[in-house]
Amino acid sequence: MDNDQSVLLKVENLTKHFPVSGNRVVHAVDDVSFTIKKGKTLGLVGESGCGKSSCARTVIRIYEPTSGRIILDGTDITNLSQKELLPHRRKMQMIFQDPYASLNARMTVQDIIAEPLRAHHICKNKAEEREMVAEMLHQVGLNQEHASRYAHEFSGGQRQRVGIARALILHPQLVICDEPISALDVSIQAQVINMLRIFQEEQELTYLFIAHDLSMVRYVSDDVGVMYLGQLVEKCETDEIYAHPLHPYTQGLLSSVPIPDPVLARKKENAGIAGDIPSPIDPPAGCRFHTRCPYAEKRCETEVPALKEASPGHFVSCHKFG
């Protein structure tokens, strides 16, 4: 499997625990495994606080993983020091959620986009750097005059384009999109998503796409993984998960997607998820979803369900299946 040339990112049993006061830990990411093939997109969905972003940040090594392995393009990067990691950083970049917080207000767009070039010593001189930035700006639909401006002079959509330009200027193979559109206006969301898709086609990019908007995930992803309280509870191809959601949590998530047609919306039985997400400091024993699951049985409270293949290519961790 490790030698499979088509796999770009392989994450095995990734776990990230954050220590908090009183010797307790936040179980942000628990035993998550997935693979992404070159040129494909894996969508990671789940409600707020389920560990999607922590997972992404651990994969890109902003957070040190507690255990597990991260294999990028055949290299195990889990335990590399930040210095050893530097050449591998070129292969993976990240697009951040908040286009306001992710751009330094004291830097011009030119400096922001050129920062990766400078960190990796790619350009020999300023002129070359300017040229590359101008080219990148053009690709994301901004023009060269914008380079001398500060981020606060732009709209949210333009800022996100700057963020994308910064992530893509190194021509990475893997781009982790941490809810890149959730802070944008609906009218801008489609523009940004389409731009990301065009880049994917042109440069054979691989995306790890994190979102809580299921309709958007359906549009961009080849595979979807559903996370709940730090664990991956279901993963399969995109069409399959929307056609046959197996895990009760996935079913709940899908039923909460708004339907634009009011006639259809009225017909839909509302099977939304009751209750709140439990604290990740003391996650429930057994199946973590049993506190909110409508089908919970006795053994759900004690036995941890494993991620099993319920139908070909469709993995789910629920006692109802298998």
Partner: peptide, 26 residues
């Protein structure tokens, strides 16, 4: 812990560059 500092780290900027370009100017 702001995203732009995180972004600088994912880019691979050195600690010195993060301090002088991002933290101290802000």
């Amino acid at each position: 812990n702001q995203e732009f500092v995180m972004a600088a780290r994912t880019i691979g900027s050195s600690t010195l560059s993060i301090l002088t370009n991002h933290l101290i100017p802000n």
